[in-house]
Nucleic acid binder design. Sequence first.
DNA 1: ATTTACATACCGAACATTCGGTAATTTACT
DNA 2: AGTAAATTACCGAATGTTCGGTATGTAAAT
Lengths: 214, 214
Amino acid sequence: MTVEQTSAGKIGAGLGPRRRGRPGYDLETLLLVAVEVFNERGYDGSSMEDLARRLGIAKSAIYHHVSGKQELLRLALDRALDGWSEAAGRARALDAPAIVRLEMLVRGTVAVLETRLPYVTLLLRVRGNTGVERAALERRRSFDALVASLVEEAERDGDIRADVDPKLTARLLFGMVNSLVEWYRPAGPAGTAGGPGLADAVCAIAFDGLRVRR
Amino acid sequence: MTVEQTSAGKIGAGLGPRRRGRPGYDLETLLLVAVEVFNERGYDGSSMEDLARRLGIAKSAIYHHVSGKQELLRLALDRALDGWSEAAGRARALDAPAIVRLEMLVRGTVAVLETRLPYVTLLLRVRGNTGVERAALERRRSFDALVASLVEEAERDGDIRADVDPKLTARLLFGMVNSLVEWYRPAGPAGTAGGPGLADAVCAIAFDGLRVRR
DNA sequence: ATTTACATACCGAACATTCGGTAATTTACT
DNA sequence: AGTAAATTACCGAATGTTCGGTATGTAAAT
């Protein structure tokens, strides 16, 4: 059950200008498979043997690509955090009211979640056990700070309800967004939608609520 | 740092009619401490040594109370799932429109989250690695089914917006609720509120939305 | 020939768990 | 009152296993 699916993706997923030397995994594909396993069994629950089995290679071969288990985690977490940083930068650069920038940030975050789902999933489960994890949590905190400041500004503008604490609002809002990783699975190559529709649904509920007004 | 805090709670947290035999941990306090560690470092990331250190007793002493690491997990997960079952039962028994039962279920779930936070936190992080975890996921799925059916019924009643898929709605709604475990910490004995206020905030955002209507 | 990717065999440390025995308390009996 | 039995909780030292990681050599491509 593992061999087929791995040997299919072994040659770098068909892209790249055919490197020299013996063919095999490139770092990117290897990382993708590793993160897949991490998300299934949890980082601590995944052994290097588990990864090797899924990859279809020997355990030691992994160490040809990365220095160890922690580096796999670091690379994966950086991919998620870089996505968030870009979305944050775009929202910051926007010349618009806070509520618009906030909605843009929500949509940007959902987009990152769609394009880099496995990495974001992993990031959201980090507990801070090792130095790598704590560094990721640090970068994440700065993102959360931006969210909180946007909510606060939008509330001062009178654009969002003032009867709920801004920090609480920020947490619930992005708690809803981030809960996507628990069930959302991206569609295949055929545009089975989910793209803009997902962000629309999130924004609809978050900003206008579930209840029908009569 | 560990000895003080444990020796304080060692005698069964001061309650119970003084059991016979040598004093020490009862199952309940031991479980509570264990779950605390599980939530800090993750279940797979926590060794029995870690637990023993925090408890202030030898590793082997834990096996006097439970059969092993997995039983600790099973007991903890059951505590969370029983809470959800009770809340589900109360919502089901209510003779009211679906949207009212749905809001009751949301409030009930938030209440469970407040009273059994550590257990619910642990439950929400289960990945399905072992039999114990898979059994818990199974019970959880039946809870999710109830939620989905309530949302669907409320949408048929015309009480919640029909432009978002019911299943998606259900997931986002309880995704927001469950995200509480990521940051919420119960108040001390002094009623520092958070009780009804928290559920109110969740329901306000979920049902009426963030935006101010003018 | 050079470069890249992998395999076999292994190591020390950490892991969950077991075992035989000990310590501190309450109950029951004299 | 004194003491033995019962009960509950714990400890230290081992067990076999699994862990992440390494050493050394081989296979397949340019």
